[in-house]
Nucleic acid binder design. Structure first.
Length: 502
RNA sequence: GGUCCAUUCGUCUAGUGGUUAGGACGUCAGGUUUUCAUCCUGGUAACAGGGGUUCGAUUCCCCUAUGGACUACCA
């Protein structure tokens, strides 16, 4: 088998959608599985949609995910340049080849004229398509005399170059995911290949570049499936072998209908982009929300592909090993934000307490804590298994850092009894006399005291937790007091008694 | 409207011409924790509908329905 060469070819029109990231990932996995080459090509032939910062965003996103580009605008390579606007000079000659072969032609219709035609057709319930049926009535090198259209070109009149789609021919082609497809050219239109601004359209640039860059497999989103027949025709007109195609199913909204959009994320509170997008209308990113790239990639890989086994947790290496186009599904996948969290939970559990403590320390610094924040490794160990994100450690441990300011009324109503203050006072003096304040020392001491006094556990432990935490949640109470220390424990008991007894 | 694509639990999916249709997320129940969460155990829940083909279809074919993509001098 020849060397696999695949490309990811986004347009720099804004932040890269997670559907795009998944396309890049599948390309990457496919290439790496066979030791092939992953190419990043920037498709910026539409200058009006170019967005500053988007190229960098794309590259940073791939890097964050651990997708390594072999050839691209930064990496270079033998087939460059890798930005289509830098390849402008190469496209025109290919358009000319098509014209010479009679497979393409000049057209002088203005956008306004065509728009009017479209409206007119629509008003009588038809769809206007620029094809064999109408091309004979419009302004182009078929309807004009050679001297007339040549004169127009010489005069610098604006024109486009269109592909001449055959009138009525069944064309057959194959997709690695969808199998064999047949389309009649009569339903297709004469697509513009070369725009009046001197730039090629996607269709021309894409085919020319894929050929020149010796791309062997085109793995892209399903939204391209309708233009596949055109692309096949172009390869045929040029006399080139076409690469193999695989059209990936789309990522759909978690609820309702249609493909996943930024709005869904905003509405339901999850990101639709890998990284925070800082320009203009900003957008949340998985990285900034606290997702690990490994978890993000794992989640994305399983959305539309499965290994055929019951394994769900995969490293990039394992994904590379297991991936195959054959196991990519045919139908669109609804995105499930809950499952995304679950993946992150799995990866967080695998981190060492030491590593998590470091990450949590960073988090605390950003929050303004600078010194004296205690044994974070131990703290993290107490709550690790209940969190999915490093930021959750904070919401699970805020009461470690500061005494409660309010006390849960529900819990007070249920647990606070007349004798509670007296019992807590007793408990306080008991704790005061303990020298070893570790959990393993305080717990048996307190339990023995409860037994000796004939109290029951519930009447003591619940109010104890209430004054220490402020409500009924959190890790083992003796672990908490051990971490905050004797002095703080006694203070909280005292404060709690006076605050609640009022 | 037209062209093309798709359709297994709520979601991601496995699977087969004859299976108790499997797993994961979610959800529910029980257990653990005298808290909350985690965790463990168990339960709930699906082959879109109608025709064929066949001894037998969830699986193969056709139709319908539903969903989706595309329908620009955007990609």
């Amino acid at each position: 088998m020849t060397n696999v060469r695949v490309r990811f070819a986004p347009s720099p029109t804004g932040p890269l959608h997670i559907g795009g990231v998944r396309t890049a990932l599948y390309n990457y996995l496919f290439a790496k599985k066979s030791g092939g080459t992953f190419i990043l090509r920037i498709e910026d032939t539409d200058q009006t949609r170019y967005v500053e910062g988007a190229e960098e965003y794309i590259m940073e996103s791939l890097a964050w995910c651990g997708i390594i580009v072999d050839e691209g605008i930064n990496e270079g390579g033998k087939y460059g340049p890798y930005r289509q606007s830098d390849r402008k000079a190469v496209y025109r000659q290919y358009a000319d080849i098509l014209i010479k072969r009679g497979d393409a032609y000049y057209a002088f219709d203005t956008s306004e004229e065509l728009e009017a035609l479209r409206k007119e057709s629509e008003s009588i319930g038809n769809t206007f398509i620029y094809n064999a049926a109408v091309r004979g009535k419009l302004k182009n090198s078929f309807t004009m005399t050679e001297s007339a259209w040549k004169k127009k070109l010489e005069d610098g009149a604006p024109y486009v170059i269109r592909y001449r789609m055959p009138d009525n021919e069944d064309i057959h082609f194959d997709d690695m995911i969808r199998g064999h497809i047949v389309v009649n050219t009569g339903t297709l239109d004469d697509k513009v290949l070369f725009k009046s601004d001197g730039m090629p359209t996607y269709h021309l640039a894409n085919i020319v570049d894929d050929h020149l860059m010796e791309i062997t497999h085109v793995i892209r989103g399903e939204e391209w499936l309708p233009s596949l027949p055109l692309h096949f025709m172009l390869y045929r007109s040029f006399g080139w072998d076409s690469p193999l195609f695989a059209h990936l199913p789309l990522l759909l909204k978690p609820d309702g209908k249609g493909k996943l959009s930024k709005r869904d994320g905003d509405k339901m509170g999850f990101p639709v982009f890998p990284l925070f997008w800082p320009f203009g209308e900003t957008a949340k990113g998985y990285r900034e929300e606290g997702y690990y790239p490994e978890a993000f990639v794992n989640m994305l890989a399983l959305l539309g592909w499965n290994p055929g086994t019951e394994q769900e947790i995969f490293s990039m290496e394992e994904l590379t090993e297991a991936f195959s186009i054959e196991r990519v599904g045919k139908s669109g996948s609804r995105f499930d934000p809950e499952k995304a969290k679950w993946f992150n939970h799995q990866y967080l559990q695998k981190k060492s307490n030491n590593q998590l403590a470091m990450e949590f320390r960073e988090f605390l610094r950003a929050k303004g804590f600078h010194n004296d924040i205690g044994d974070l490794e131990k703290l993290v160990g107490l709550v690790k298994e209940r969190v999915s994100f490093v930021k959750d450690i904070w919401s699970e441990t805020d009461f470690f850092f500061k005494a409660p300011e309010t006390y849960d009324n529900e819990v007070i109503k249920k647990r606070w009894k007349e004798d509670s203050p007296a019992i807590l006072m007793e408990l306080s003096s008991l704790l005061k006399n303990l020298h070893d304040f570790s959990s393993s020392a305080t717990e048996p001491a307190v339990k023995a005291w409860i037994e000796e006094k004939g109290y029951n556990m519930g009447q003591v432990m619940n109010v104890f937790r209430l004054v220490i935490v402020g409500t009924s949640r959190g890790p083992h109470i003796f672990d908490i007091i051990s971490w905050i220390g004797k002095e703080e424990t006694l203070n909280r008991i005292k404060k709690g008694i006076s605050a609640i007894s009022v």
